[in-house]
């Protein structure tokens, strides 16, 4: 089956019900996307599918054929993603970092959908778990990002 990931086409040999997460990590070696629960509970495995945040551990690989998948490895190719990463660094968000690929993905998808999200929008969208409790910093970074008009640099 053919998958389009980070603007590149891969020929993937996997059964249709294999979670996208393991195809990304094992078949393709893109290990920036993390495994935390395998049960749609934590969000560590978040990627974007056609711009929408998607938990890859509960995404059968055959359900995303023909769609454009973006993983954390290509996040800085996306102007919004690049800004998110900059603010993540500015606000020194990560601690252990394990959940952060997913957090950055969720934040990027949110900002792609709503340029200037309100606090409610942020609360509704940023639902990934962080065992290190970086939630205050994530909110601070998003507040900062929401204030900006879309800067496509």
């Amino acid at each position: 089956m053919k998958l389009s990931i980070n603007n590149k086409t891969y020929d993937v040999d996997a059964e249709g019900d294999t979670p996208l997460l393991w195809v990304i990590r094992d078949n393709l070696g893109l290990t920036g996307t993390k495994y935390g629960c395998g049960l749609a509970q934590c969000g560590a495995c978040s990627v974007m599918v056609d711009g929408v945040v998607t938990r890859s551990c509960v995404t059968p690989v055959d359900s995303v054929e023909g769609q454009e998948i973006t993983t954390i490895e290509a996040i800085e190719n996306d102007p919004v993603g690049k800004r998110v990463v900059e603010k993540w660094v500015e606000h020194q968000v990560p601690q252990c970092g394990y959940c952060q690929s997913g957090q950055v993905m969720a934040a990027t998808a949110l900002l792609k959908e709503i340029e200037n999200p309100t606090q409610d929008d942020v609360d509704a969208a940023m639902v990934n778990l962080c065992r290190c409790g970086t939630y205050n910093a994530i909110h601070a970074a998003l507040k900062d990002l929401s204030g900006n008009e879309g800067d496509a640099s």
Binding site: A40, R55, D62
Partner: peptide, 11 residues
């Protein structure tokens, strides 16, 4: 995340 915003599930 699983059942989709469209309520259609995944395959």
């Amino acid at each position: 995340f699983c059942h989709g915003r469209d309520g259609l599930g995944k395959n």
